[in-house]
Design a protein around this nucleic acid. Structure first.
Lengths: 196, 196
DNA sequence: AACGATACGGAACACTGTTCCGCTTATCAA
DNA sequence: TTGATAAGCGGAACAGTGTTCCGTATCGTT
């Protein structure tokens, strides 16, 4: 139920007709461009225009804007999720692994204009986006937190969900205001996790 | 330029005509009710309906939605601002004063459905809101931070603006998701401030 | 009472995301 | 090759925003 739209499990072929498959790719490319230029909240019509396609075509491939955004960033989110266990395995300290993983996540968010804002769950219409990010990343974050807590490096009792949301929230508006440095605030939050 | 709309410096009389003054008060009350019931992002039309007034009347008194929100919460923001120096004077530890002041601010934000979200500066149309809150609270926060830094209770080099924005961001969506406890995340952030 | 300034109501505008359906076109069987 | 058919497409139309505009009603004053 999380996301069934547009793309499919690894390697599948997509829509039957050739033109449809082509358009799906065109749409992903156009959306990526427009997101870079105007942020993820860019009007659907702009994306359609950029792709040289009608808005109806977008909605056939991606039932909602959130699905399109998920499709565009899916690979990066997956890569981030996979980096978690890898970091945990390669570092001496789970806390260090956690900190680096969060860094990576923040980098991702901050470089995508407006994405952090779109992740708010109460932001009607972006439920799917919220759901995919959380489904994918919360378990990883939880694993890192648990490992660090088991070693006694951090205070116990924090869940992946709240940390992810906290970090995500801190990244909102990180672009669009040079006086606010989200990375610094996130660093503070992570520092606060340390054992007292 | 920050905010000149609707209200005026302490004690002034408001619009000339009696009905206009009356409507302004009705509007403030109606807006307050609707904000409690439906959040600060409630449609302007809803507020107009609740007040028994046309939308044009709202815009005559409050040129933009942000101005209306500012007017509704002005007193509470001011009270919060004034609590800063008071706390600083009455506590032994500036850090303690800072922590309590932040608590108070968080309480305010969290109990106002959607207000934290509306505070985002990149949220087009809410510039006035953003500006008023920041103008009023950033200096107070900065003062508390400086006092704590001078005592060596926290790491130096943090400004009021970034802390206020960080705290504000952490409060986004605090209602509407019982799994996310904004107060807890803010506490983490403040804990992270402590000297290492 | 009459008049001018002020304020009101709500239709209209510009902009969203999303749905719908007549038309086009790719695909495949004959 | 040629229909027939289903899949896909475009963009007008719908529903919902915030905001503007202006004819009308009301207030306060002369």
């Amino acid at each position: 139920m999380v996301n069934d739209s547009g793309q499919q499990a690894a390697g599948a072929a997509g829509p039957k007709r050739k033109d449809a498959r082509r358009n799906q790719q065109i749409l992903l490319d156009a959306a990526a461009s427009v997101f870079v230029a105007s942020g993820v909240e860019a009007p659907v019509r702009d994306i359609a225009a950029r792709a040289g396609v009608g808005v109806g075509t977008i909605y056939r491939h991606f039932p909602t804007r959130a699905d399109l955004i998920v499709a565009v960033y899916r690979h990066q989110v997956d890569a981030c999720a996979e980096a978690g266990p890898a970091l945990l395995a390669s570092r001496e300290s789970p806390y260090e692994a956690l900190a680096q993983w969060i860094d990576r996540f923040v980098d991702f968010l901050v470089t995508k204009h407006g994405l952090a804002g779109a992740l708010q769950s109460d932001n009607a219409g972006f439920d799917g986006l919220h759901a995919y990010f959380l489904d994918r990343l919360v378990p990883v974050c939880g694993q890192l937190l648990d490992a660090a807590a088991d070693r006694g490096e951090i205070r116990p009792g924090f869940g992946g969900l709240e940390l992810m949301r906290g970090v995500g929230n801190l990244c909102i508006g990180a672009d669009s205001d040079p006086r606010y440095d989200a990375r610094r605030m996130v660093a503070l939050l992570i520092a606060g996790l340390r054992r007292t």
